[in-house]
Design a protein around this nucleic acid. Sequence first.
DNA 1: TCGGCGATTAATGTCAACATTCGACATTGA
DNA 2: TCAATGTCGAATGTTGACATTAATCGCCGA
Lengths: 213, 213
Amino acid sequence: MNARGIAAEAAHMIREAIMDGSFRPGEELREGSLAESLTVSRGSVREGLSILEREGIIRTGWHRPATVIPVSRDHARNLYRLRAGLDRIAAQGAAHHTRADGFSPALESLRSAVTDGAARSEVVRADLEFHDAVYEVADNAPLTSAWQAIRSQIRLYQLVRSAEPESGYDSSLVAEHSRYAEILTSGDVETAGRYAEQHVESALEGLLGRLGD
Amino acid sequence: MNARGIAAEAAHMIREAIMDGSFRPGEELREGSLAESLTVSRGSVREGLSILEREGIIRTGWHRPATVIPVSRDHARNLYRLRAGLDRIAAQGAAHHTRADGFSPALESLRSAVTDGAARSEVVRADLEFHDAVYEVADNAPLTSAWQAIRSQIRLYQLVRSAEPESGYDSSLVAEHSRYAEILTSGDVETAGRYAEQHVESALEGLLGRLGD
DNA sequence: TCGGCGATTAATGTCAACATTCGACATTGA
DNA sequence: TCAATGTCGAATGTTGACATTAATCGCCGA
């Protein structure tokens, strides 16, 4: 939480409440009650909700309460199709720049989270932070911005994916990401792009299996 | 202007002022003076600026005035690399759905704008609306959202590109877009994706030639 | 003279009151 | 009975006053 300002803090609180299930998909978020429970003004809550809308995890309508986005197979497919495209560009960019040590710390952190048997949410967080590192190495501000705009939605679906035990979510996680990092440092732009797309595609497959809908 | 609310209207006014050069790249936008000149409250201006930030044409900072994004070769390269990736997915999606009449009206409107010798800004608008149609046919909400987040920035650079006469901007425009539409209706997903990427790549080349910086 | 430091000031951040709008429910009329 | 319409309540949209922050400029001392 390094974000400055009450609005950003409000956004943080609401976001985490959504992530831990305190607000279900489709549920309404009323500015008034949020303001009361967070002990801030409705204006700040409103600005916080605007941030969350930018992250795509809530929708707003004219004179209607904000709602948590519903999760569905269709939306997941479209979201991951977009992510595949973004990751492809990021991987190409990262491979092009070839800064070897860019994602080693993130990879190490992911590995220790998995081997330590950390909570699901922690593993998901480490997973996303690895991808953050890839985007950072790619060094493309508009691309990173597009990633930020879907990151929270991805997080929501990853939590769904890893919600139940025996999901096999983190068994191959470290191996796949190690291979990913290897390819990126190899500098082979084309291969990197292809691998990134395929990586996301397989993640989608695993997710769709868990999405009854 | 079907947008509802004073904030959206304020965003519209400011956006157009940026597009027609009333605010130069890098220039500061003060909430107070904007509120005064638009005769609305600072709060509404603030929310309008938040919309424009989502569109990527202004930046904001903590306790600092918003600024119009600076244009640069680097930023253009990164922006168009992202756009190429998005357009690729959109083209693949549109080719997959194969709704023939989806972009014919937009194409016709672009053709008439060019042949009528309409103003640069009108041609750019028609150009973008054609691409809007492609995204709509692709029918992928997160993807369309990502497109909306860069659309205004693209518009800004397209205006730069077509700013001076003899730029050769619209000579091949109609031909290229007709071919684009053809490929999309043909249903060949792979070819559509490749053509879209290449289309953007050549647009970037033309743009970089006009960007001294 | 120069460099650090504090008051100034001009901007943004926050708040609470008021205006507007939407959806639901009751009402009325054919 | 049913559909169009009026009314009501609860939510969001908008506003202006007040709090907070960061850059600027001048002062002071080494």
